[in-house]
C-alpha cells in the first residue's frame, strides 16, 4: 500500500511539473495576450491541483495536510477568478484577440 501511494504521488508531481512547464512555454512563446492567457490559465489550475495532491499524498495525516488542502482550495478559487478578471479587463481596455475582425471599433 505505501508503494502505491508513493507511486501515485510521484505520478501526480511529474504530471504537474510537465503541465507547469508547458504553461510557461506557452506564456513565453504564444503570439498575443489572449493566447498566452489561455496557456497560463488553463494549465495552472490543473497543475496546482496535481502538485498539491502529490504533496498531500506524500505528507500523510497531520496539520500540514490541512494547510495543503487550504492552499489547494485557495488557489483553485482565486486562480480562475484572477484569470477571468484579467481577460475581461483586457477586453474592456481595448485589446482584441488575434483574428478578431472588429479590431478598430471599441464599444
Amino acid at each position: 500500500m505505501p508503494e502505491l501511494i508513493t507511486l501515485l504521488s510521484s505520478l501526480c508531481l511529474l504530471l504537474g511539473a510537465f503541465l507547469i512547464f508547458s504553461g510557461g512555454l506557452g506564456v513565453l512563446r504564444f503570439p498575443d495576450f489572449f493566447t498566452r492567457m489561455h496557456a497560463a490559465g488553463v494549465t495552472e489550475t490543473m497543475a496546482v491541483t496535481l502538485i498539491v495532491l502529490g504533496l498531500m499524498l506524500h505528507s500523510g495525516w497531520g496539520l500540514p495536510l490541512f494547510k495543503l488542502l487550504l492552499i489547494l482550495l485557495f488557489v483553485m478559487i482565486t486562480g480562475p477568478t484572477a484569470s477571468h478578471a484579467l481577460a475581461k479587463s483586457a477586453l474592456h481596455g481595448g485589446l482584441r484577440p488575434l483574428g478578431d475582425d472588429s479590431n478598430n471599433e471599441r464599444h
Binding site: 485557495f74 478559487i77 482565486t78 477571468h84 475581461k88
Partner: peptide
C-alpha cells in the same frame, strides 16, 4: 460593479 465574479469570490474569501 461589472466584476460580479470578483465580488462573489471576494465575499467568500474575506472571512477566511
Amino acid at each position: 460593479a461589472e466584476h460580479k465574479v470578483l465580488r462573489v469570490v471576494g465575499k467568500m474569501l474575506i472571512p477566511l
